[in-house]
Write a protein that binds this DNA or RNA. Structure first.
Lengths: 198, 198
DNA sequence: ACAAACCAGACGACCGGTCGCATAATCGTG
DNA sequence: CACGATTATGCGACCGGTCGTCTGGTTTGT
């Protein structure tokens, strides 16, 4: 098999892996199920990945990339200041999750809860992904501070972390309440009030 | 077997169940493991519970009770106003989790993430538990509002939800960062700043 | 013809759940 | 009260299924 098509199959595995991990979690997702849907024989799995655990770690990185790109895109929109970019980004996310029926939530949050303290491999991947994501939000807030829309008596990093934590908690609530209301609430509380200049 | 000793064994099952569910999650915890540690034969499990799922639902209720009692206790301390009671309560939780090595986090949060959108039985239990817990925090904040320490331009319920969501998100961060810093940060951001009167 | 890559199937372990047998408790009868 | 018959209960062994992982025969490419 060519190196190209191998990478392509690996990509497909990760893509489907993200979907299933997001839908059912780590332990409830079988490798067989992932392999079947992308038509890759079970015996071949270990030519792509060392183990299920390492597969999940790669899936984590594969998952976060689009989110970073999308937030970056909003940040490069010259019409939006830092805070407005964040608002636009989260509005988009809320609209999307409403369409998909409140399923899944965030893979990062789900795996942090399920295996964040039992799989060191995944913990490292999660740490890295969260750090990159958090940094980007920090940048957005920093810009907002420079532009005068975001308060400066709290560090951008602290506000980014609060936003991220509140969002993760709201995603959990969304799951059980089957509603985007918690997501809207946290965005409103933080982006439309707490983060504003006094 | 007497009804009394049966209830006692059921209690033991729930106790150990909570411990293991908290430590490893729903799907990674086997009934056998729970039953072995409390010396109850596997065949007897279904005289206590209808299924693993229903067992988890009961474990959820069994888990949240002590937290409600503890927060209630702080609220009944006449020396503390509503906000101070919340601060004292969360300080206690942080101190405890630091001693236990950042393991587990919150059973409610973990199960919301793992099975909150796949097990309707557990979802109902989670909804109920979260509602009771959230209500109690709302009461604390309401009292703080009456006593003049908590801002009144936001509803106590909204602030209670924000606190709860931020706390859950911080617990996830704690797991992967192996540190109580996220917990302290969210408490400080909300209880020492955002919730204060302007 | 040979090496490398691939993959079917098997492996042992464990899952949640069931079932029939052994034991215990209750009852009927002398 | 004694004792066999009958019912109720407890539980170890087992069910079909799935798990993640490994191995060795087969295919592929050179």
């Amino acid at each position: 098999m060519t190196t190209d098509s191998k990478q392509l199959k690996k990509q497909k595995l990760l893509e489907q892996g993200v979907t299933l991990l997001l839908e059912k979690g780590y332990h409830a997702t079988g490798l067989k199920q992932i392999l079947d849907t992308v038509q890759i024989p079970k015996g071949s799995f270990y030519t792509y990945f060392d183990s299920k655990e390492q597969f999940a770690a790669e899936a984590i990185n594969h998952y976060i990339e689009p989110f970073i790109l999308r937030l970056s895109a909003h940040l490069q929109n010259p019409e939006l200041d830092g805070l407005a970019a964040l608002k636009a980004y989260y509005s988009e996310l809320i609209a999307e999750v409403a369409e998909t029926g409140f399923k899944g939530g965030c893979l990062l949050g789900n795996l942090m809860g399920e295996i964040g303290d039992t799989s060191s491999l995944c913990r490292d991947a999660l740490l890295n992904a969260v750090a990159r994501y958090s940094d980007l939000q920090k940048v957005a807030l920093q810009r907002g501070q420079q532009q005068g829309s975001v308060r400066v008596d709290r560090s951008a990093q602290a506000m980014a972390d609060l936003m991220l934590n509140g969002w993760q908690g709201a995603l959990l609530r969304m799951k059980v309440e089957q509603s985007v209301a918690p997501l809207q609430a946290v965005c409103q509380d933080l982006l439309d009030d707490y983060f504003l200049v006094r």
